[in-house]
């Protein structure tokens, strides 16, 4: 019972944080709130019995991605305005809120309608629990001798999948190096006309 209570409370916090992120206009505060959002979700992953995922989310979401976003903010802030307005998001002129709200409302309603048929939270007889997962739980020890099932599935049963994921991470690193790996070109005006030829 207590874990359901923690679950409900943390999810409510997450929802409140996300609305705060949506409504704020100071980008610096938004990035900090996003770090808190990640930390809350790491806690929630622990409550839902996923320590490996919580580990990753705490290190990645609250650590690396916050640092990267702060670095981007430092690179993209406008220097024309005063110090107070450096990180301020400008109000959008072209958009009215009603069309996005309608899209989001209709999509959300359709998705909520879809949850009527989903098996309840934590149901041990749900289809997701009865097929391949049961095999992993019963045979991991005799197949691989590794007690941590997540590691066994990650590296052994689904090793091909993980190879692809590592390749994606590597490719993203290469792409970022191509985009912003060199020093910044001296004259910012010429960059636009030359397109992609200015990678140093």
């Amino acid at each position: 019972m207590i874990d359901i209570l923690i679950n409900v409370t943390l999810l409510a916090f997450l929802a409140i944080t996300s609305v705060a992120i949506l409504r704020m206009t100071n980008l610096f505060a938004i990035v900090m709130l996003y770090g808190i959002f990640s930390l809350l979700s790491a806690g929630l992953f622990v409550v839902m019995d996923a320590p490996d995922v919580a580990f990753t989310e705490a290190a990645v979401g609250a650590g690396i991605s916050t640092v990267l976003m702060l670095a981007t903010l430092a690179l993209t802030r406008s220097r024309k305005r005063g110090h107070e307005g450096d990180y301020e998001e400008k109000p959008s002129r072209a958009h009215r809120p009603w069309l996005p709200l309608a899209v989001v409302g209709i999509t959300g309603t359709a998705l909520v309608y879809g949850t009527w048929d989903i098996p309840g939270f934590g149901d041990p007889n749900a289809p997701a629990q009865t097929h391949v997962a049961r095999y992993y739980i019963e045979n991991t020890m005799s197949d691989t001798g590794v007690p941590n099932m997540v590691t066994a599935v990650l590296a052994s049963y689904r090793g091909f999948d993980t190879l692809g994921e590592v390749a994606v991470v590597f490719t993203a690193g290469v792409a970022v190096l191509l985009l912003i790996g060199g020093r910044r070109p001296k004259s910012g005006a010429k960059v636009k006309s030359e397109g992609g030829e200015d990678e140093a």
């Binding site: 320590p51 490996d52 580990f55 990753t56 290190a59 990645v60 650590g63 690396i64 590794v146 007690p147 941590n148 997540v150 590691t151 990650l154 590296a155």
Partner: peptide, 17 residues
């Protein structure tokens, strides 16, 4: 990582941190 929570992904991120 074989015996407790952990593995290559987490260790790599923590090391880079």
């Amino acid at each position: 990582g074989d015996f407790g929570p952990g593995g290559g992904f987490q260790a790599g991120v923590i090391f880079s941190a």
